[in-house]
Each structure stands twice: as structure tokens, then as C-alpha cells.
Design a protein around this nucleic acid. Structure first.
Lengths: 133, 133
DNA sequence: CTCTGTGCAAAGCGTTTGCAAACGA
DNA sequence: TCGTTTGCAAACGCTTTGCACAGAG
């Protein structure tokens, strides 16, 4: 818990129970959308409102604590901020796995005349578990 | 025009003026969102309704005539269907450029135990024009 | 103690739906 | 002609807003 408090303060945000809880639910799920955060947290905090989640998701995005993951045809999910990475999105079960962007891949993405800030790589397919069915 | 009629029929869709016009506006813009399609087309077809555009965008997506391009923090744009490619998204002017995915890049994205269907690569940065300011 | 954050309810908007009339094949 | 598509208006559902109260620093 303490680590989320620190994380928030480092990014100029007050540490409230709502915010640390949201971060906790994101961390636990890996990638999660707003409705699911609400479902998870309202058990523990029955008075928590969706509006609060929306406000904080926007805020924590602006302050680089979390990152939006837009997914084809679905509501965006959110993940804790970390270095750019690849998302393996299973079209069968919906699971999202993270993979490092290899040095080789990075090199091949250096495009002349474009000053690259961040990269978003989503690979859609079928994960190992679902292949075994 | 004829080519859009063919394109639609090849994909099991009736060729209506609304549909060919939508495709024309997408082609011309390269990447465009629904509101902008509406803005462009209502000049020429004042009775065209937003509902019709929504219905057809969904339909043409399902029938693989067009592709959705989800963009961080913005409304999705749409492009004519073509092979997977890279989007260079300028965070300064909003322009989107397409680039081929090189064979080298493709190779580095072959991930074991994942059956890859399609890839979505968005690179956010500053385009050449905007760098020169 | 002060200022920011929360929760609730209402407002706002983008998107979808139902249906009669128009249209494509 | 027959089944599909369109346009309109209403309905819907997600997201945002305003405000009084609670809570963090």
C-alpha cells in the first residue's frame, strides 16, 4: 500500500484511499477497464462512486501513473505506467499479455524523419491456452 | 466510383450512394473519424444522417471493407482495408502517415506460442513538418 | 485549518434503435 | 416486386459536471 502512496505523491497527487485502491485493482488485474474496477472495488468500498473512478483515471493518466490501452471494438483498459511494451491480445479469451519490445524490434522501428516518443504495439491472435482447445 | 461499387459487392454489401460516398471520403482523407465524414458529406448530401454513417461504418468494418484505427485519447478514425501497416501519429498536428511493416520488423514480432492474426502498430511522435517549426 | 477529493444526482453527448418511406437489384 | 437501406426522432448508456460534505496534508 505504501508504495502506491509514494507513487501518487511522486506524481503530485494526494494519496486517497480511492486512488490507492484503484491502483491496486489495476495492478492485480494487469489490464482492466473502468466498469471492472468499479465491480471489484464496490465490494470493499460500497460508497465508492463511478464518477470518482472516472475523475481519478483521467487524473492519473495525465500525471503518468497509469496508461490507457485502447482495444479494437472494446472499452479501453488501463495498466500501471511502465516502459513501452507489446500487448498480445487473445481474440478468443480476451486475455492481454505483456512482452518486452526487443532491441532488434526497436531498431527496425527507427523511422527517418520521425521523432519517436512512444510506441503502441498490439498483436491480435490466439494465446497458447486457447490454441489448446 | 465504380471501384467502390465493386468493392462493396465483392464484400456482400449493396452499393448505395451513402456507402460509396463514405468510402470516397475515407479514401480522400486517408484516416478520418465519423464526425468528419459527416461534415464532409452533408454538404453534398444534406439529408444524409449520422445514424446512416454509424450503421454503415459498423457494417463495412464487419465485412472487412474498412478498418478502425483507435487513437489514444481521441475518437477512432477509419481507413480503407489494406495489409497491416505502421501508423506514424504526429502529436503536434494530428496527421497520420502509413508505413509498411518491414520484413525485418515482422520477423522480430514472431512470438512463440502466440498465433498472430493481425498487428496494430502506432508510433506517436513528431512528424517532419512539425519538427521544422 | 485550508484546500482538494468524494459521492450523489442531474446533465450532456455520442451511439444505437424502431419504424415508415425510399431505394437497389 | 421484394428485401434491404435510409432518415428521423426517440431511447440508451457511458461520461462529465456541480455542489455540499468529508478528508488529506
Amino acid at each position: 500500500m505504501t508504495d502506491y502512496i509514494t507513487l501518487l505523491k511522486e506524481n503530485d497527487l494526494k494519496a486517497t484511499i480511492q486512488r490507492t485502491s484503484i491502483l491496486k485493482s489495476i495492478k492485480q488485474a494487469g489490464h482492466i477497464n473502468i466498469d471492472d474496477i468499479y465491480e471489484v472495488l464496490k465490494e470493499q468500498y460500497p460508497t465508492l462512486s463511478l464518477a470518482t473512478i472516472y475523475k481519478n483515471i483521467i487524473l492519473m493518466q495525465q500525471n503518468s501513473v497509469i496508461i490507457e490501452v485502447p482495444i479494437n471494438g472494446e472499452k479501453s483498459k488501463y495498466e500501471l505506467k511502465k516502459d513501452d511494451h507489446i500487448h498480445l491480445i487473445c481474440q478468443s479469451c480476451g486475455e492481454i499479455q505483456d512482452r518486452e519490445i526487443s532491441v532488434k524490434t526497436k531498431e527496425t522501428l527507427e523511422i527517418s524523419n520521425f521523432q519517436l516518443n512512444s510506441s503502441q504495439i498490439n498483436l491480435y491472435g490466439v494465446c497458447q491456452v486457447c490454441q489448446g482447445r
